[in-house]
Amino acid sequence: MGKAKQIVKNFTKYNNLLYELVKKNIKLKYRRSYLGILWTLIEPLLTMIVLTIVFGTFFNKGTKQFPVYVLTGRLLFSFFQSATKAGLKSVSGNASMIKKVYVPKYIYVVSSVVSNFLIFLISLVVLVGVAVVLKVEPTIYLSQAWIPLIILFVMSLGTSLILATLSVFFRDVEYIWGVACMLVMYASAIFYPVEKIIKSGKGWVFNINPVYMCIANFRNSVLYGVPMNMQYCVLSAGIAVVLLVIGMVLFYKKQDDFILYL
């Protein structure tokens, strides 16, 4: 309990620094772009158009809401990918600051994930616009859409803490994680329907992928207007909490050694 209180106390003490780091991360992401943060809206829209044109030919089957299907998967996976990749580099990338000034090192990881989450929330404006244009009818289950988003945020934070710790000691983690993200993407049904995969007996791929579980439940709430898959909800939430606990413990135990390897 004492350690938990100390963590909360430190987090409160350095909340202004967290705010500044989040603001800095967002500015750096778009510092040399003429359109700036507008790319948060333009990039997923252009990607959706390309994926719809390419894969819609094979999988669309006449449904006008296929772009929303693609966009929901694309936005959620992109947040997970960008947040974890930024979190992975957050400690090693701030080596000079860590050597000069003492602040809780987890602040750098948290700021990376939070800044990407804020960018993701802004990009949801595109999803709303596309859904309105394609006449996706909102239902009462839309109120559940925030649940898979919070689960995905916790999952990204836990994964980032683990990756940030490992990357200090093993720089190859960055390249390994790039390949792992590619595997997760193809197993997340971003641009293809899952029915044929499930019928072929290979649906187990989705049942072990917590990122897909969040995407599926988000689609249920936003696109299909049906209740969330509670099995997916409980399982993905459990995995997210386990990852967060592992990440916190690993980061806490190894953080004093960071200075020797940065």
Rank of each mutant, 00 (worst) to 15 (best):
V205H: 04
F80D: 07
L260D: 15
W146A: 13
A240W: 02
A187F: 10
L75V: 08
S221N: 06
G87D: 03
T139L: 05
G129C: 05
V194Y: 03
L142R: 01
N15A: 03
A180N: 07
S143C: 06
V168I: 02
V126G: 01
P148D: 00
L149D: 01
L262C: 08
L51P: 05
M1A: 15
L71G: 08
S188M: 06
K24F: 13
L244K: 04
V68D: 00
I162F: 07
T47S: 09
G87R: 03
K27N: 11
T159D: 04
M228L: 15
T12G: 04
I151D: 00
G62E: 00
L260G: 06
N220Q: 15
A189H: 05
Q6Y: 14
L38F: 14
F170S: 02
K64R: 08
V91Y: 02
S115L: 01
L243V: 06
M230G: 01
G36K: 08
N25G: 12
G238E: 00
M248W: 07
A216P: 03
V8Q: 14
V91D: 03
V54A: 14
G56V: 15
C181M: 15
L183G: 13
A4I: 13
I259C: 09
G129M: 10
V133P: 05
F218R: 05
A164T: 02
F191Q: 06
R32E: 06
Y14W: 13
L18A: 00
V241G: 01
V241M: 07
F58R: 08
A83P: 04
I42G: 01
M1R: 12
N209A: 04
L17V: 12
V54M: 14
Y212N: 06
K5E: 15
N207Y: 13
L35P: 05
V133G: 04
N10H: 12
E43S: 08
I42D: 00
L157I: 10
S221T: 10
V249R: 03
L183M: 11
V222D: 05
W146S: 09
S111K: 09
L250I: 00
Y261R: 12
V249H: 00
E20I: 04
P67A: 08
L161F: 15
I98F: 07
F11W: 09
E20T: 04
S90E: 06
K85G: 04
V54N: 08
I190D: 00
F251Y: 14
F77Q: 06
L235Y: 14
V114G: 11
I98S: 10
L223Q: 09
Q81C: 11
K27A: 07
G93H: 05
V22S: 02
Y14T: 08
S115D: 11
L124I: 07
